[in-house]
Design a protein around this nucleic acid. Structure first.
Lengths: 212, 212
DNA sequence: TTGTATTTCAAACAGGTGTTTGATACGCTT
DNA sequence: AAGCGTATCAAACACCTGTTTGAAATACAA
């Protein structure tokens, strides 16, 4: 029987939550089914039973609704494109870095950028491609229609690269500055920097060749 | 007997070269000693015999001399700091992306940023910390002494983040643009963009608060 | 309560990993 | 050629991985 509170649905939910945690912490490959089941207080066979395989568990653990909702809210915000870029960067950084309110699926996505798994196709299709489309439009609003397609893409990559650096390089930054921790305030300061830095960069790039 | 061309030294060298290839392609964990030995045309036991362990092989495979030489040459170059930043970014990108003349140890380093292994401490100490120091001085020359330490660091991260994005996100970019390939010319175009973008960003940041 | 389908469990399985072993082959000096 | 230390090799080892198995427990309808 399909019922939200059945025993089966409860372990399913616990497994998904544990999987998001473990996958985002250790990466898909280093994460073991046994640790996920330990955290979910379930038997090792539960993953195969409920999701078919470890791959299937990852596919169901991914949930980009928050990411999409963030973009939709951004589009509907009445503000200058520069302000909306700042908002986007802040929300994106919070998803990537905030330990309490962050989005594990987004952190999984960040990991998969460099280390593909069978789920990467789904991630690209459902999360990254729409994200690029959204960000492309936003950058174009700032740069003006005169900007070339290649330059627009490079500006997008400059922004995403700055954001993702703090997640990807976290182990290194932690070693260089052991007392480092990302409070909400620090994340917002970083986001403000990236936004300022990037707007100046975009304006400079768009002012060099095109008609602005 | 210790001799450069002895049979032992030959397989040692072949193992190191194969290891750099495989580690930079698959990452340390996914790389198997069996594949490394296959490529080096050596027996599986050769790794343990010559390097003690897979960890030991990685430690010896790392060689940041090219990275250091690049920084030294940059320092000795007589040019504006903006020009030297452009040079640094170009050389760094070539090491990260150029398939024929790139530096496998640098690509390994890029991978390890996100996925630490026992070698990360050595990498941070010997490669990343000096790199940060070098880049910090260079950015300070552009920004002026008025820039705050925190802002200086964020500018450095903005630059490194942009550079590393193209390596980290390569699997995704490949999926989004299947015909993508990094020729030397394209790498130099990307480097020029990052340099222009970043100089504008640094000038904007340093002009906001400090005395420049 | 009885019967049936679903869910859980300990145990085992098959495959891959890094590493070790002991014998064999090799290079080099005497 | 004989002797010796080094290097190579096939084979095995111990461990960990995702997955499967078949029995036991549970939930639920009749």
């Amino acid at each position: 029987m399909i019922e939200a509170n059945s025993a089966s649905e409860q372990t399913r939910t616990r497994l998904l939550e544990a999987a998001r945690e473990v996958f985002s912490q250790h990466g898909f490959q280093s994460a073991t089914v046994r640790e996920i089941c330990r955290r979910a207080d379930a038997n090792v066979a539960a993953v195969s039973y409920h999701f078919g395989s470890k791959d299937g568990l990852l596919a169901e653990a991914l949930n980009f609704a928050p990411l999409k909702a963030m973009q939709l809210a951004n589009i509907q915000t009445v503000a200058s494109p520069e302000m909306r870029l700042h908002l986007f960067i802040r929300d994106f950084m919070l998803m990537l870095l905030d330990e309490t309110n962050g989005s594990p699926p987004c952190r999984i996505m960040a990991r998969e950028l460099a280390d593909p798994t069978p789920a990467l196709d789904k991630i690209v299709r459902e999360a990254i491609a729409p994200l690029h489309e959204f960000l492309g439009k936003l950058v174009r609003e700032i740069a003006g229609d005169g900007i070339a397609e290649a330059e627009l893409r490079r500006c997008m990559y400059s922004i995403l690269g700055q954001c993702l650096y703090y997640r990807h390089s976290h182990p290194v930054l932690q070693r260089l500055h052991p007392k480092l921790r990302y409070s909400r305030k620090k994340i917002e300061a970083i986001a403000a920097h990236i936004a300022d830095f990037s707007v100046a960069g975009i304006r400079h790039i768009s002012g060099k060749t095109g008609a602005g």
